[in-house]
């Protein structure tokens, strides 16, 4: 077994071993710091030949995550390889929180705000983290 990753946990569902309850801590130094984000991860039948399906359950203000929690990440799409694991996927998602990419947006309004007024966007992201990701 690989070392557990600090700030990330993935626990399989009791009734469905393909379904994981994931918790990712907002990375230090990011506007998501201090937040605890819940995600769901599902391994489709074809896994590992096709990518796991991952979605944020906790509301988050991020240019690459839309309001339904869907994530814009290449390794979840065409850059998927069977050599990637749940661990690598979750690490990539954690990295996406540290480094939002407004040029490759999924949530257009958020991305625009991020580009026009980054300070304001980060403030909103902090506010959302406090509102939705710290309630326990």
């Amino acid at each position: 077994m690989a070392e557990p990753v600090p700030g990330i946990s993935a626990i399989p569902d009791e009734s469905n071993a393909r379904y994981f309850h994931v918790v990712v801590a907002g990375p230090e130094g990011s506007p998501f710091e201090g937040g605890v984000f819940k995600l769901e991860l599902f391994l489709p039948e074809e896994y590992p030949m096709s990518a796991p399906k991952v979605r944020f359950m906790t509301k988050i203000y991020h240019p690459n995550i839309d309001k339904l929690g869907r994530i814009c990440l290449d390794i979840l799409k065409d850059k998927w390889s069977p050599a990637l694991q749940i661990r690598t996927v979750l690490l990539s998602i954690q990295a996406l929180l540290s480094a939002p990419n407004p040029d490759d947006p999924l949530a257009n309004d958020v991305a625009e705000q991020w580009k026009i007024n980054e300070g304001e966007a980060i403030k909103t992201a902090r506010e959302w983290t406090r509102l939705y990701a710290m309630s326990g």
């Binding site: 339904l68 947006p105 257009n108």
Partner: peptide
């Protein structure tokens, strides 16, 4: 296009 991805990817 990028707009497709942003506006109606899903």
């Amino acid at each position: 296009t990028r707009n497709c991805m942003a506006d109606h990817w899903f």
